[in-house]
Amino acid sequence: MEKILLLFVAVLASTAAQFDYTFPDYNRTPLGDSIDVASMKLLKEIYEQSSDKNVVSSPLGVLTLLSLYASGSEGKSREEIMALLGSNDYEQLSGSYSELSERFASLDPNYLILANKVLVSNKYTLDEGFSKTARDYRSEVDNINFENQKIAADAINNWSSSKTKGLIDHPVSESDIDPTAAIALLNVIFFQGHWHVPFNASKTKEQEFNVDRSTTVKKPMMHLRQSLHYREDNEMGVRMIELPYKESKFRMIVVLPNEVDGLPGVLEKVATQGLLENVFRMYPAGAEVDLDMPKFETRSKINLNDVLSKVGVSGIFKNAASGIVKERGVRVSKALQEAFVKVDEEGATAGAFTGLVAVPMSSWSRPPPPIPFKVDRPFLYAILNDDIVLFVGTYTH
Rank of each mutant, 00 (worst) to 15 (best):
K310S: 13
A335D: 12
Y283Q: 07
A83T: 10
V311S: 07
I371T: 03
G315I: 00
T125Q: 11
D386R: 03
H397M: 02
Q92P: 11
I183S: 00
G355Y: 09
G355L: 01
L84Q: 09
S14H: 07
V211F: 05
M82H: 06
Q18H: 15
E338S: 06
Q149P: 06
Q337R: 04
D292T: 03
R225K: 14
M240F: 02
F340W: 09
L336V: 04
D176L: 00
L126P: 06
A153P: 00
S51A: 15
A271I: 12
K318L: 12
L68D: 05
F19P: 01
S139W: 02
S57W: 03
N258M: 11
R135H: 13
A152V: 10
K203S: 11
L65F: 09
V343I: 13
V211D: 03
T394G: 04
S73R: 03
E327D: 06
V270Y: 11
L126V: 02
V332P: 00
T204H: 06
I253G: 07
S101Q: 04
W195D: 00
G72N: 01
A16C: 05
G61H: 09
L308T: 05
P370M: 08
L186I: 08
H170K: 15
S162D: 15
T272V: 12
I81T: 07
G32T: 02
L100G: 04
A38K: 10
S139C: 04
S50R: 02
F391A: 02
S300N: 07
F146K: 00
S50F: 02
Y137G: 03
V260R: 11
S227Y: 10
V118R: 00
L384F: 08
S73E: 11
Y26D: 01
F317C: 08
K3I: 10
R138K: 15
V37T: 13
L100T: 05
G265T: 11
V392F: 02
P244W: 04
F199T: 09
N116A: 09
Q273T: 13
F191L: 08
S131G: 03
Y395C: 03
G32D: 08
A287F: 02
E268M: 08
S121H: 05
N278D: 13
E259Y: 13
M82P: 01
S50K: 07
P369V: 00
V260H: 01
L12H: 12
N54R: 03
K326Q: 14
A271H: 12
P284G: 11
E247R: 10
M40S: 14
I81Q: 11
V260L: 05
E147W: 01
K218N: 12
L308N: 06
I144G: 03
Q337H: 08
A134S: 15
E79L: 12
A350S: 10
K117D: 05
Y137N: 02
F130K: 06
L93N: 10
N278Q: 11
K342R: 14
D386H: 05
T29F: 04
K44V: 03
V332C: 01
I388S: 07
A382Y: 04
K53R: 07
R231L: 14
V254L: 13
L65H: 02
M1G: 14
